[in-house]
Design a protein around this nucleic acid. Structure first.
Lengths: 131, 131
DNA sequence: TTTATATTTAACTGGATGGTTAATTAACCA
DNA sequence: TGGTTAATTAACCATCCAGTTAAATATAAA
Protein backbone atom coordinates (compact mmCIF):
# COMPACT_ATOMS: atom_id res chain seq x y z
CA UNK A 1 0.00 0.00 0.00
CA UNK A 2 2.66 2.45 1.14
CA UNK A 3 1.60 5.97 0.10
CA UNK A 4 -0.31 8.30 2.36
CA UNK A 5 -3.43 8.63 0.24
CA UNK A 6 -3.77 4.86 -0.04
CA UNK A 7 -3.30 4.57 3.68
CA UNK A 8 -6.07 7.07 4.28
CA UNK A 9 -8.52 5.36 1.95
CA UNK A 10 -7.62 1.96 3.37
CA UNK A 11 -8.34 3.25 6.86
CA UNK A 12 -11.76 4.42 5.71
CA UNK A 13 -12.54 1.09 4.05
CA UNK A 14 -13.99 -0.40 7.20
CA UNK A 15 -17.36 0.34 8.79
CA UNK A 16 -16.08 0.04 12.35
CA UNK A 17 -13.35 2.56 11.72
CA UNK A 18 -15.71 4.96 9.98
CA UNK A 19 -18.12 4.68 12.90
CA UNK A 20 -15.28 5.47 15.27
CA UNK A 21 -14.45 8.59 13.29
CA UNK A 22 -18.08 9.63 13.35
CA UNK A 23 -18.13 9.21 17.08
CA UNK A 24 -14.94 11.22 17.46
CA UNK A 25 -16.32 14.02 15.37
CA UNK A 26 -18.60 14.70 18.33
CA UNK A 27 -15.76 14.95 20.78
CA UNK A 28 -12.88 12.99 22.17
CA UNK A 29 -13.37 9.67 23.91
CA UNK A 30 -11.17 7.06 25.44
CA UNK A 31 -10.74 3.54 24.09
CA UNK A 32 -13.37 1.69 26.10
CA UNK A 33 -16.00 4.32 25.35
CA UNK A 34 -15.20 4.05 21.68
CA UNK A 35 -15.26 0.27 21.86
CA UNK A 36 -18.54 -0.01 23.70
CA UNK A 37 -20.88 0.00 20.66
CA UNK A 38 -18.91 -2.85 19.09
CA UNK A 39 -18.31 -5.17 21.99
CA UNK A 40 -21.14 -7.44 20.97
CA UNK A 41 -19.56 -7.89 17.57
CA UNK A 42 -15.89 -7.98 18.43
CA UNK A 43 -13.37 -8.00 21.25
CA UNK A 44 -11.57 -5.06 22.77
CA UNK A 45 -8.20 -5.92 21.22
CA UNK A 46 -9.91 -5.84 17.83
CA UNK A 47 -10.93 -2.25 18.50
CA UNK A 48 -7.43 -1.41 19.69
CA UNK A 49 -6.20 -2.63 16.33
CA UNK A 50 -8.68 -0.48 14.45
CA UNK A 51 -7.52 2.50 16.47
CA UNK A 52 -3.95 1.70 15.58
CA UNK A 53 -4.84 1.70 11.90
CA UNK A 54 -6.54 5.09 12.26
CA UNK A 55 -3.61 6.42 14.23
CA UNK A 56 -1.04 5.26 11.69
CA UNK A 57 -3.07 6.93 8.99
CA UNK A 58 -2.90 10.11 11.04
CA UNK A 59 -6.67 10.32 11.33
CA UNK A 60 -6.70 10.22 15.11
CA UNK A 61 -4.25 10.80 17.91
CA UNK A 62 -4.17 9.39 21.38
CA UNK A 63 -3.52 11.26 24.58
CA UNK A 64 -2.61 9.92 27.98
CA UNK A 65 -4.58 10.54 31.10
CA UNK A 66 -3.91 8.10 33.92
CA UNK A 67 -4.84 4.69 32.55
CA UNK A 68 -7.06 6.21 29.90
CA UNK A 69 -6.13 7.03 26.35
CA UNK A 70 -8.39 9.80 25.15
CA UNK A 71 -8.60 9.74 21.36
CA UNK A 72 -9.37 12.73 19.23
CA UNK A 73 -10.11 13.19 15.59
CA UNK A 74 -7.53 14.78 13.36
CA UNK A 75 -9.82 15.98 10.58
CA UNK A 76 -6.96 17.70 8.81
CA UNK A 77 -5.69 14.31 7.70
CA UNK A 78 -8.84 13.70 5.70
CA UNK A 79 -8.27 16.67 3.50
CA UNK A 80 -6.00 15.12 0.85
CA UNK A 81 -8.45 12.27 0.34
CA UNK A 82 -11.39 14.65 0.13
CA UNK A 83 -9.48 16.84 -2.29
CA UNK A 84 -8.71 13.84 -4.44
CA UNK A 85 -12.38 12.94 -4.62
CA UNK A 86 -13.32 16.51 -5.30
CA UNK A 87 -11.92 16.33 -8.81
CA UNK A 88 -14.69 13.87 -9.65
CA UNK A 89 -17.55 15.86 -8.27
CA UNK A 90 -18.15 17.18 -11.75
CA UNK A 91 -18.99 13.67 -12.87
CA UNK A 92 -22.02 13.34 -10.72
CA UNK A 93 -23.12 16.73 -9.67
CA UNK A 94 -25.71 18.57 -11.68
CA UNK A 95 -25.20 21.85 -9.96
CA UNK A 96 -27.95 24.42 -9.81
CA UNK A 97 -26.27 26.70 -12.26
CA UNK A 98 -25.35 23.87 -14.60
CA UNK A 99 -21.68 24.29 -13.92
CA UNK A 100 -21.47 20.55 -13.73
CA UNK A 101 -23.04 20.04 -17.11
CA UNK A 102 -20.80 22.66 -18.58
CA UNK A 103 -17.63 21.05 -17.31
CA UNK A 104 -18.77 17.64 -18.46
CA UNK A 105 -19.12 19.10 -21.92
CA UNK A 106 -15.64 20.52 -21.73
CA UNK A 107 -14.29 17.13 -20.84
CA UNK A 108 -16.28 15.52 -23.63
CA UNK A 109 -14.80 18.03 -26.07
CA UNK A 110 -11.29 17.27 -24.94
CA UNK A 111 -12.05 13.61 -25.28
CA UNK A 112 -13.23 14.09 -28.85
CA UNK A 113 -10.14 16.04 -29.69
CA UNK A 114 -7.69 13.49 -28.45
CA UNK A 115 -9.85 10.63 -29.64
CA UNK A 116 -7.87 7.39 -29.95
CA UNK A 117 -10.21 5.17 -28.01
CA UNK A 118 -13.42 5.35 -29.89
CA UNK A 119 -13.72 3.48 -33.14
CA UNK A 120 -12.52 0.24 -34.60
CA UNK A 121 -9.05 0.55 -36.00
CA UNK A 122 -8.40 3.70 -34.13
CA UNK A 123 -7.30 2.11 -30.91
CA UNK A 124 -3.93 3.52 -30.19
CA UNK A 125 -1.38 0.75 -30.27
CA UNK A 126 1.87 1.38 -28.46
CA UNK A 127 4.78 -0.97 -28.59
CA UNK A 128 6.30 -1.47 -25.20
CA UNK A 129 9.63 0.28 -24.94
CA UNK A 130 12.37 -2.32 -25.15
CA UNK A 131 14.13 -0.93 -22.16
CA UNK B 1 -15.42 -5.80 3.99
CA UNK B 2 -18.90 -6.27 2.55
CA UNK B 3 -20.72 -2.90 2.49
CA UNK B 4 -20.71 -0.62 -0.50
CA UNK B 5 -18.95 2.33 1.08
CA UNK B 6 -16.14 0.12 2.33
CA UNK B 7 -15.85 -1.40 -1.10
CA UNK B 8 -15.54 2.04 -2.66
CA UNK B 9 -12.87 3.21 -0.25
CA UNK B 10 -10.99 -0.06 -0.60
CA UNK B 11 -10.99 0.34 -4.37
CA UNK B 12 -9.48 3.80 -3.95
CA UNK B 13 -6.81 2.55 -1.58
CA UNK B 14 -4.38 1.69 -4.35
CA UNK B 15 -2.32 4.10 -6.43
CA UNK B 16 -2.62 2.06 -9.61
CA UNK B 17 -6.38 2.03 -9.38
CA UNK B 18 -6.55 5.73 -8.62
CA UNK B 19 -4.32 6.44 -11.62
CA UNK B 20 -6.63 4.38 -13.79
CA UNK B 21 -9.60 6.42 -12.61
CA UNK B 22 -7.73 9.64 -13.35
CA UNK B 23 -7.00 8.40 -16.83
CA UNK B 24 -10.62 7.43 -17.35
CA UNK B 25 -11.81 10.82 -16.23
CA UNK B 26 -10.35 12.09 -19.49
CA UNK B 27 -12.25 9.64 -21.61
CA UNK B 28 -12.82 5.97 -22.09
CA UNK B 29 -9.99 3.61 -22.95
CA UNK B 30 -9.57 -0.09 -23.50
CA UNK B 31 -7.61 -2.38 -21.22
CA UNK B 32 -4.23 -2.35 -22.95
CA UNK B 33 -4.25 1.43 -23.22
CA UNK B 34 -5.04 1.67 -19.53
CA UNK B 35 -2.36 -0.88 -18.72
CA UNK B 36 0.40 0.72 -20.78
CA UNK B 37 1.70 3.15 -18.13
CA UNK B 38 2.10 0.28 -15.66
CA UNK B 39 3.61 -2.47 -17.76
CA UNK B 40 7.08 -1.78 -16.51
CA UNK B 41 5.89 -2.26 -12.95
CA UNK B 42 3.42 -5.08 -13.35
CA UNK B 43 1.92 -7.57 -15.75
CA UNK B 44 -1.23 -7.24 -17.79
CA UNK B 45 -3.18 -9.75 -15.68
CA UNK B 46 -2.37 -7.63 -12.66
CA UNK B 47 -4.05 -4.67 -14.34
CA UNK B 48 -7.00 -6.86 -15.32
CA UNK B 49 -7.40 -7.62 -11.64
CA UNK B 50 -7.33 -3.98 -10.68
CA UNK B 51 -9.99 -3.30 -13.26
CA UNK B 52 -12.08 -6.06 -11.81
CA UNK B 53 -11.85 -4.46 -8.39
CA UNK B 54 -12.95 -1.12 -9.81
CA UNK B 55 -15.74 -2.78 -11.73
CA UNK B 56 -17.04 -4.68 -8.70
CA UNK B 57 -17.06 -1.42 -6.78
CA UNK B 58 -19.15 0.05 -9.57
CA UNK B 59 -16.58 2.72 -10.33
CA UNK B 60 -16.08 1.68 -13.92
CA UNK B 61 -17.92 -0.38 -16.49
CA UNK B 62 -16.62 -2.29 -19.43
CA UNK B 63 -18.03 -2.31 -22.93
CA UNK B 64 -17.41 -4.74 -25.74
CA UNK B 65 -16.13 -3.77 -29.14
CA UNK B 66 -14.61 -6.64 -31.09
CA UNK B 67 -11.69 -7.87 -29.04
CA UNK B 68 -11.46 -4.61 -27.11
CA UNK B 69 -13.07 -3.81 -23.79
CA UNK B 70 -13.52 -0.07 -23.61
CA UNK B 71 -13.72 1.02 -19.99
CA UNK B 72 -15.46 4.12 -18.82
CA UNK B 73 -15.65 5.91 -15.53
CA UNK B 74 -18.84 5.78 -13.54
CA UNK B 75 -18.35 8.90 -11.47
CA UNK B 76 -21.79 8.54 -9.93
CA UNK B 77 -20.44 5.69 -7.81
CA UNK B 78 -18.00 8.00 -6.08
CA UNK B 79 -20.71 10.19 -4.71
CA UNK B 80 -21.54 8.29 -1.51
CA UNK B 81 -17.88 8.23 -0.53
CA UNK B 82 -17.46 11.91 -1.30
CA UNK B 83 -20.62 12.69 0.65
CA UNK B 84 -19.31 10.74 3.58
CA UNK B 85 -16.09 12.72 3.60
CA UNK B 86 -17.97 15.94 3.19
CA UNK B 87 -19.24 15.80 6.74
CA UNK B 88 -15.65 16.29 7.92
CA UNK B 89 -14.84 19.24 5.74
CA UNK B 90 -15.77 21.47 8.64
CA UNK B 91 -12.85 20.01 10.57
CA UNK B 92 -10.21 21.34 8.28
CA UNK B 93 -11.74 24.12 6.30
CA UNK B 94 -11.54 27.64 7.54
CA UNK B 95 -14.18 29.03 5.29
CA UNK B 96 -14.16 32.66 4.22
CA UNK B 97 -17.07 33.55 6.40
CA UNK B 98 -15.76 31.61 9.37
CA UNK B 99 -18.58 29.11 9.20
CA UNK B 100 -16.03 26.41 9.87
CA UNK B 101 -14.73 28.08 12.98
CA UNK B 102 -18.25 28.62 14.19
CA UNK B 103 -19.23 25.00 13.81
CA UNK B 104 -16.07 23.84 15.49
CA UNK B 105 -17.04 25.96 18.45
CA UNK B 106 -20.50 24.44 18.49
CA UNK B 107 -18.98 21.01 18.60
CA UNK B 108 -16.62 22.03 21.36
CA UNK B 109 -19.59 23.27 23.36
CA UNK B 110 -21.49 20.05 22.90
CA UNK B 111 -18.41 18.17 23.93
CA UNK B 112 -18.17 20.17 27.10
CA UNK B 113 -21.81 19.57 27.87
CA UNK B 114 -21.80 15.83 27.46
CA UNK B 115 -18.38 15.56 29.05
CA UNK B 116 -17.86 11.98 30.21
CA UNK B 117 -14.40 11.55 28.82
CA UNK B 118 -12.56 14.32 30.50
CA UNK B 119 -11.92 13.93 34.16
CA UNK B 120 -10.95 11.24 36.53
CA UNK B 121 -13.87 9.25 37.84
CA UNK B 122 -16.25 10.39 35.19
CA UNK B 123 -15.53 7.72 32.65
CA UNK B 124 -18.73 5.98 31.84
CA UNK B 125 -18.53 2.36 32.85
CA UNK B 126 -21.01 -0.02 31.29
CA UNK B 127 -21.22 -3.65 32.11
CA UNK B 128 -21.54 -5.75 29.04
CA UNK B 129 -25.03 -7.10 28.66
CA UNK B 130 -25.00 -10.76 29.64
CA UNK B 131 -26.78 -11.82 26.49
C1' DT C 1 0.44 -4.65 49.08
C1' DT C 2 -3.24 -6.40 46.79
C1' DT C 3 -6.92 -5.74 43.66
C1' DA C 4 -9.43 -3.59 40.01
C1' DT C 5 -9.59 -0.99 35.70
C1' DA C 6 -7.95 0.43 31.07
C1' DT C 7 -5.41 -0.76 27.49
C1' DT C 8 -1.91 -3.09 24.82
C1' DT C 9 0.89 -6.94 23.23
C1' DA C 10 1.74 -11.69 21.68
C1' DA C 11 0.76 -15.56 19.17
C1' DC C 12 -2.16 -17.58 16.26
C1' DT C 13 -5.71 -18.25 12.26
C1' DG C 14 -8.60 -17.85 8.05
C1' DG C 15 -9.46 -15.29 4.28
C1' DA C 16 -8.58 -11.38 1.19
C1' DT C 17 -5.06 -8.83 -1.80
C1' DG C 18 -1.71 -8.11 -5.16
C1' DG C 19 1.34 -10.00 -7.67
C1' DT C 20 3.42 -13.86 -10.78
C1' DT C 21 3.61 -17.20 -15.17
C1' DA C 22 1.32 -20.18 -18.30
C1' DA C 23 -2.68 -21.38 -20.67
C1' DT C 24 -7.13 -20.13 -22.66
C1' DT C 25 -10.73 -17.60 -25.04
C1' DA C 26 -12.38 -14.58 -28.52
C1' DA C 27 -12.25 -11.74 -32.47
C1' DC C 28 -10.03 -10.05 -36.43
C1' DC C 29 -7.06 -10.51 -40.57
C1' DA C 30 -4.47 -12.58 -44.52
C1' DT D 1 -7.11 -22.30 -42.25
C1' DG D 2 -3.66 -20.28 -39.38
C1' DG D 3 -1.71 -16.37 -37.16
C1' DT D 4 -2.04 -12.15 -34.45
C1' DT D 5 -3.96 -9.23 -31.03
C1' DA D 6 -6.74 -8.29 -26.76
C1' DA D 7 -8.03 -9.76 -22.70
C1' DT D 8 -9.18 -13.19 -19.22
C1' DT D 9 -8.64 -17.31 -16.42
C1' DA D 10 -6.13 -20.69 -13.67
C1' DA D 11 -3.00 -21.98 -10.38
C1' DC D 12 0.08 -20.54 -7.38
C1' DC D 13 2.50 -17.69 -3.67
C1' DA D 14 3.70 -14.14 -0.15
C1' DT D 15 1.89 -10.74 2.53
C1' DC D 16 -1.60 -8.19 4.82
C1' DC D 17 -5.87 -7.88 7.38
C1' DA D 18 -9.37 -8.60 10.88
C1' DG D 19 -10.42 -11.24 14.14
C1' DT D 20 -9.48 -14.49 18.22
C1' DT D 21 -7.76 -15.75 23.30
C1' DA D 22 -4.44 -15.30 26.79
C1' DA D 23 -0.97 -12.75 28.97
C1' DA D 24 1.28 -8.41 30.10
C1' DT D 25 1.57 -3.54 31.43
C1' DA D 26 0.28 0.56 33.82
C1' DT D 27 -2.30 3.38 36.79
C1' DA D 28 -5.55 3.99 40.57
C1' DA D 29 -7.76 2.72 44.66
C1' DA D 30 -8.52 0.01 48.88
Amino acid sequence: MSDRLSQTFAALADPTRRAILVRLSQGEANVSVLAEPFLEEMSLPAVTKHLKVLEKAGLISKGKEAQWRPCRLNGEALRPAADWMEQYRVFWEESLDRLGEYLKTVVAEEQKNQEGTKKKGKYRERKKKSE
